[in-house]
C-alpha cells in the first residue's frame, strides 16, 4: 500500500480535557500498520477553504495496529488546533504520515523518560515499546499543574516507576521534575534518557549525556511546513559542524550530543 498524497483519517474518539488538551484516536490503516515509535503525522481539519492550509505536525502517542488506529495528544494553541477541538468522533481529518525516523532500538535495559505536559505524547509510544521488550521504564513527568498532566494515565501503564512533579504541587512533587531525576541518579542508573516538551529539560539531558551519566536523546519540535524534508523550515543547529539538521528528515529524535538547543 502506497500513499498518493494526503489521506483521510477518521476520528474514532476525541476527548477534550480542561478546554486545551485534545486526546484523539484516529483510524488510518496505513499509518497504524507501518508507524514506528518516534515518528509523527501531519494533520489538518478538512476545511479546504480555511485560510490555514499547512498541516501541523503531531507526535504519534500510541500505535495500535490491531485496531488500525493511532493516538494523538494535542495542546490547543492556535487557530488550527482550535479547529481540531470542535471535531467529533466520526469526523474525518486530512492526515499524512508516518513521517520522520522512528526509533528502532532502545539502548540498554533501563529507559528513562523526562517529559513535560503535552510533550509526553512524543515519548509515549517509545516507552510502550520498551515495556513490550521487557525493559524497565522510569518516567519523570512534569507539568505546570495537575490539569496539564495530559497523557499521564498512559504512562501509568507502561512505567515501572512514575515520578510526577507539578510546578504548583497540585499533584506529586512540588517543583522541578529534574530534582527527582537527579535524586534517582544518585542511587541508580538508567541506560538511556529520552526527553520532550521543554528546552530546559533538553539542556539537562544534553548535560547528563556529555557527562556520560546516561545516553541522552531529544525529541525535537519545530515549526514545520512539509514534514517531508523539502521546505527546510524545521532547522536545528548541528553541534559538531556548521549547518542545520532538519527535524522532519533527520529526526525528530536526535542524540543529545548532535544538536544545539538554543
Amino acid at each position: 500500500m502506497k500513499p498518493q498524497g494526503n489521506s483521510r483519517g477518521r476520528i474514532v474518539s476525541l476527548k477534550v480535557h480542561k478546554d486545551i488538551y485534545i486526546d484523539m484516536e484516529i483510524r488510518d490503516q496505513l499509518i497504524a500498520s507501518t508507524a514506528v515509535p518516534g515518528q509523527f503525522v501531519m494533520i489538518r481539519t478538512l476545511q479546504e477553504a480555511n485560510e490555514h492550509l499547512l498541516l501541523r505536525p503531531f507526535d504519534i502517542a500510541q500505535i495500535m495496529p490491531e485496531k488500525q488506529t493511532l493516538r494523538v495528544l494535542v495542546k490547543v494553541k492556535g487557530t488550527v488546533t482550535e479547529g481540531m477541538r470542535k471535531l467529533r468522533a466520526g469526523d474525518e481529518i486530512t492526515i499524512r504520515g508516518p513521517l520522520g525516523n522512528g526509533v528502532r532500538e532502545i539502548p540498554g535495559n533501563t529507559m528513562g523518560v523526562l517529559v513535560r505536559g503535552a510533550g509526553s505524547a512524543a515519548v509515549l509510544a517509545l516507552a510502550e515499546k520498551a515495556k513490550s521488550e521487557n525493559k524497565t521504564v522510569i518516567t519523570f513527568f512534569s507539568a505546570s499543574t495537575e490539569d496539564a498532566l495530559i497523557g499521564v494515565k498512559y504512562f501509568e501503564n507502561c512505567s515501572d516507576v512514575l515520578h510526577i512533579a507539578t510546578d504548583d504541587g497540585s499533584r506529586g512533587y512540588r517543583g522541578d521534575a529534574r530534582d527527582l531525576l537527579h535524586d534517582y541518579l544518585k542511587e541508580k542508573r538508567i541506560d538511556c534518557l529520552y526527553t520532550c516538551g521543554s528546552r530546559r529539560f533538553a539542556r539537562t539531558v544534553k548535560d547528563l549525556d556529555a557527562k556520560k551519566v546516561t545516553k541522552g536523546y531529544l525529541f525535537l519540535e519545530e515549526y514545520m511546513g512539509c514534514g517531508v524534508g523539502t521546505c527546510h523550515g524545521c532547522a536545528v543547529r548541528k553541534e559538531k559542524e556548521d549547518g542545520y539538521y532538519l527535524v522532519c528528515q533527520d529526526g525528530p529524535v536526535f542524540p543529545a550530543s548532535e544538536v544545539i538547543i538554543e
Binding site: M224, G233, A235, D242
Partner: peptide
Amino acid sequence: KTVFKNFRPGNDPPRIVETSCGILNSVGIP
C-alpha cells in the same frame, strides 16, 4: 534548490510561518 558557489548553512530558525492563505519563509537557501 538554487545552488551557490560555496556552502551556505541557511538562516536561523524560525524559518517558516503560516499567514493567511500563504506562508512566509526565511530559509535562506542552504
